[in-house]
């Protein structure tokens, strides 16, 4: 009799276990870190204006680095534009190795792509002119549209430092 009672109790608990649902809930991890720079103990980390303003200041204190109509409402080919922009950025950082001191700005007007940015003057003028022609020629061949490089030079990296954190 005692055995039967035990069995019944076990059956009940197993049934309860099966019926209950165990949903594990943790605290909300609403951590936002992207595009934000942490302060160093002695405030030695140099930031440009772009880096000093976190992403939520876009359209308030700073603007977008890519200007196009693909991402407006009803814009066409947003995916292709994004991939092309990534390709342009990679190509430019690789071709102008350690020369860009700002982010690469890509502005599209009709079928023209304008690439702008700040470049250090650590390269001879002739080499820089060669690189401009080289980049324009290759990119316009790959992207099948006119590409224009509109660069600005600064003497060194120190010229674009906005603040230290």
């Amino acid at each position: 009799m005692a055995l039967a009672g035990n069995i019944r109790a076990i059956m009940q608990t197993t049934q309860q276990l099966c019926q209950q649902r165990y949903l594990h809930v943790t605290a909300v991890a609403s951590r936002t870190q992207a595009g934000r720079h942490r302060a160093t103990p002695r405030r030695t980390k140099a930031l440009t204006y772009e880096m000093a303003n976190p992403p939520h200041y876009i359209a308030h204190r700073k603007t977008w680095n890519s200007w196009n109509t693909s991402n407006v409402m009803g814009g066409n080919r947003p995916g292709e534009t994004a991939v092309e922009d990534i390709f342009i950025r990679r190509f430019m950082t690789g071709t102008w190795h350690a020369l860009f001191v700002s982010d690469i700005i890509i502005k599209r007007q009709h079928n023209i792509i304008r690439i702008a940015g700040l470049v250090q003057r650590s390269l001879a003028q002739r080499k820089m002119y060669f690189l401009i022609g080289y980049s324009e020629e290759l990119l316009s061949y790959w992207l099948q549209c006119p590409v224009k490089l509109e660069l600005q030079t600064v003497a060194s990296k120190e010229d674009v430092i906005f603040k230290y954190v």
């Binding site: 603007t63 702008a116 700040l118 674009v160």
Partner: peptide, 23 residues
């Protein structure tokens, strides 16, 4: 152009990416 730090003028036109971005 740009949002200035305290007690400082806004960034000037040399090496200013914000001026290059806007049409």
């Amino acid at each position: 152009q740009g949002y200035s730090l305290r007690d400082q003028p806004p960034p000037d036109k040399y090496g200013n990416t914000e001026l290059m971005k806007i049409p």
